[in-house]
Simulated assay, not measured.
Amino acid sequence: MTAILFKTATLFAATATLAAGTVLLTAPTAGARTTAAASNACYDGAWTYRKGAGYGVLPINGGVYRTTSRCADINIKADQATSLELCYSNPSDTRTTCKDYVTAKAGQWKVMGTNFKDGTRFWFNVAAIDTLKTGSIAA
């Protein structure tokens, strides 16, 4: 039995398996993306934040962020190590859920929560109220 994997620049793949004179071709759907490509699309759409001293919530204007179709997860990349908790409410109800406080290391993407519906409202409670905090959010 011989297996051959063909890969094209458009991320389509076909596998041909030869067994007893038969050929089986399989390919992912036309819209398939690799995990790396999906992550890049998510992070490429990130927006920046700036939390001044005296504020304990992001965004600081009392609003909320909303998830988009670019990302299935809520991610943060802090410019300074930051302890924070993710809070969110789904588009279809008003209940609020907050996760435990975690530390986002400086300069590294941190997944704060996974598998959110598009339009989910979210915000962060930040432990260091008296400290300037900056970074990026992708959701």
Rank of each mutant, 00 (worst) to 15 (best):
A3P: 11
G21S: 14
A106I: 01
D93C: 01
D44R: 02
T48K: 11
A27R: 10
A13V: 07
K105Y: 11
T17M: 11
Y49F: 15
A139C: 08
L84E: 02
V111Y: 01
A81G: 12
G62A: 06
C87N: 00
G56D: 13
K117Q: 13
G135E: 03
A138V: 03
A128K: 07
D118W: 10
T48Y: 08
N40D: 12
G21Q: 09
N115L: 06
V23R: 03
A20P: 04
T29W: 07
A32T: 06
A20R: 13
A128W: 04
T114L: 04
T35G: 08
N40G: 06
P59F: 04
T34K: 01
N40C: 01
Y101T: 10
T82N: 10
D93G: 09
S39P: 00
L11R: 14
S136I: 00
A3S: 15
I129Y: 11
P59N: 09
G62N: 05
K110M: 10
G52C: 07
G107D: 03
N90T: 09
T67N: 07
V57L: 08
A16I: 10
L132Y: 13
D79E: 14
A9C: 03
A27D: 04
K99S: 02
N90G: 06
L5Y: 13
L86P: 02
A37P: 00
A20C: 08
G107H: 02
G54N: 06
A38L: 09
Q108P: 03
T103R: 12
I76C: 09
S39A: 14
I129N: 12
V126T: 04
L25G: 02
R121W: 07
V111F: 02
V23K: 02
T15M: 10
V126H: 05
G63F: 03
T35V: 09
K77S: 05
T134I: 10
D130T: 13
N61R: 04
T48F: 05
T2G: 12
D44Y: 02
V23F: 11
V57K: 12
T114C: 03
T48H: 08
V102F: 03
A138K: 01
R70G: 07
N115Q: 11
A3K: 14
S83F: 06
F122Q: 01
A3L: 15
A41L: 03
T131F: 10
D118V: 12
A46R: 08
C98I: 00
G56R: 05
G135N: 05
G113N: 00
G45V: 00
S83W: 12
V57F: 06
F6P: 01
P91R: 06
V102T: 09
T131L: 11
F12A: 14
A36Y: 05
D44T: 00
K7T: 12
K117S: 13
C71Q: 03
G63C: 05
R121P: 02
F6L: 14
G56S: 13
K133R: 15
Y49W: 10
R121L: 07
V102R: 07
A9Y: 08
I4Q: 14
